[in-house]
Design a binder for these strands. Structure first.
Length: 486
RNA sequence: GGUACCGUGGCCGAGUGGCUAGGCUCUGGUCUGCAAAACCAGCUACAGCGGUUCGAAUCCGCUCGGUACCUCCA
């Protein structure tokens, strides 16, 4: 079965064929660490975690790079802006690197909570200043850059004569020229759409490095080009990021790579869509974002309750990564319930009693699941197939359907492969199978059974209610009582 | 203004020419001492108008509505 990936560059799905199978190189734009991560960051991370996990599941040896932007892009339009990280550092009376460390740690904690696997390498922009300077030099030598007042700019017009600037975002240089806003401080540039490769730092700017041109810092898009090349080679398979990075960030990366090495670096461009709030993009600039920490604790005025990391992950996976996804309490609560149902069924698989024959064909579900995930990582379809299996599991549990021992373990394997391994979901009840808990629960249920037999409903109900408070649910069935974590 | 995308049932969200997506909610039933859970059944949509077609949510055109990018942004 072939894996299809939607390539933004071609605007269609393509069969994925790695350059150097079984090795796959993947580069994803990570966070700028000057603030807490919000739902949008989670979407990008979960999307590419899904890609990473699935590629690994298929047997590829993946080198997954996700950068940490700690140099700080410019704050405003114009190039007069102040380094974001430097600004935050001044405000908080901290060293810039202290800010970087703080938010990097928090980001990693959030991603761990969301059960995102760690990338193979998480390089920082500040740790690769030399590589970036080298690349700027090469672009300069190749004639696609010019120096102005200590800064180096990319000559888009000249580049566009030999290559096509705008092929990723579908923009034309002529149109850009007409539509580029008049911004302050652009007099250093030949054209408004030229972008900085190296920027001279003014005296207030505290993050700065020496270079052949000036004491300054690398331009907006250099780090990804330089670090991608360093760790994945001149050409690599996948480059991912949020759709909002398409232009100008990724467009400029393409230009930089071509200007430096005469060829494209990236074969498959992947972009995840935005999270919206009331139909509007959730973003830092709009100030309508909710941080992951706020979701986990429920401490935000827009939240009716706390939502666990796995609820957030499941919510994200229930939509396709290329669709916008609208945040609402209702949608999150629905995701929470659905997830609970899914995991409840997962743990009943082990309690199922086998029959001599199966009343349903469960073998086909594995193919259906692969079909879904191989079709550009269609996690919502994959999840719908798992829910079909949930129904079958419960039917078997209710003796309304039957499965052979072989089929039961087959179903178990599907859940292990797709729910846990590929979708990266995990049960949030850590004590699930603790022997002691099981023993205690059996004792308690025995007492409750005796109470019920002597029609001591008060005791029976008290046991049930008290356990309920501990998130333990009693289920009375024909064959006696059972229990599970909620 | 330029470029691109989207508009699906009470809510979320798949689907791109013919076959019930799925989840949540709601209603009725089975089970239960009562619940919960589970199961069964019901509610069956595709912005509007026109066109192509034996047949369209799905293709084409127009209209209306919304969003994203064009400035840092996942």
């Amino acid at each position: 079965m072939q894996l299809l990936i939607y390539n933004t560059l071609k605007r269609k799905k393509e069969v994925f064929e790695p350059l150097n199978a079984p090795h796959v190189g993947m580069y994803v734009c990570g966070p700028t660490v000057y603030g807490d991560a919000h739902l949008g960051h989670a979407r990008s991370a979960v999307t590419f975690d899904l890609v990473f996990r699935h590629l690994q599941h298929l047997g590829y040896k993946v080198r997954y790079i996700r950068n940490i932007t700690d140099v700080g892009h410019l704050e405003n339009d114009a190039d007069e802006g102040e380094d974001k990280i430097g600004k935050k550092a001044r405000l908080e009376q901290l060293e810039p690197m202290e800010v970087v460390k703080h938010f990097t740690d928090r980001y990693e904690q959030n991603m761990d909570a969301l059960n995102c696997k760690h990338p193979s390498i998480e390089p920082t922009a500040s740790g690769h200043i030399i590589e970036q300077i080298e690349m700027v030099k090469t672009i300069f030598e190749n004639g696609y850059a010019y120096e102005s007042e200590g800064s180096v700019y990319f000559d888009v017009e000249k580049y566009n004569k030999n290559y096509k600037y705008g092929k990723l975002s579908g923009r034309k240089v002529e149109e850009l020229l007409e539509n580029t806003r008049e911004l302050a401080g652009q007099d250093e540039k030949k054209n408004g759409f030229d972008f900085a490769l190296w920027k001279k730092a003014d005296e207030r700017h505290i993050m700065r490095w020496p270079s052949p041109w000036s004491d300054g810092f690398p331009g907006w898009h250099m780090e990804c080009s330089a670090m991608g090349k360093k760790y994945l080679g001149e050409t690599f398979d996948i480059h991912g990021g949020g759709m909002d990075l398409l232009f100008p960030h990724h467009e400029s990366e393409i230009a930089q790579s071509n200007a430096a090495q005469g060829k494209d670096a990236v074969r498959y461009w992947m972009h995840n869509n935005m999270i919206t709030v009331n139909g509007q993009k959730m973003g830092k600039s709009l100030n309508n974002f909710i941080t992951l920490e706020e979701f986990f604790t429920g401490k935000h005025e827009a939240l009716q309750q706390a939502y666990s990391p796995m609820t957030i992950r499941f919510f994200l996976l229930q939509a396709h990564y290329r669709s916008t996804l609208d945040f609402s309490n209702e949608a999150l609560q629905a995701a929470e319930k659905g997830m609970t149902k899914l995991f409840a069924a997962y743990s009943t698989i082990d309690k199922l009693s086998a029959s001599a024959t199966s009343s349903t064909d469960v073998k086909k579900y594995r193919d259906l699941c692969y079909q879904a995930i191989n079709d550009d990582f269609n996690s919502p379809i994959l999840i719908s197939h798992l829910f079909d299996l949930v129904k079958i599991i419960n039917q078997v549990n209710d003796k309304k359907a039957s499965l052979t021992a072989e089929d039961i373990s087959f179903v178990k394997q599907i859940f292990d492969d797709f729910l846990l391994d590929i979708l990266g979901m995990k049960s949030e009840n850590s004590t699930d199978n603790s022997q002691l808990v099981n023993y205690l629960m059996n004792t308690i249920l025995e007492i409750r059974k005796n109470a019920k037999e002597s029609k001591d409903w008060a005791t029976a109900d008290k046991i049930r209610d008290e356990l309920n408070k501990l998130n333990i649910q009693i289920k009375d069935t024909k064959d006696g009582a059972d229990w599970s974590f909620k």
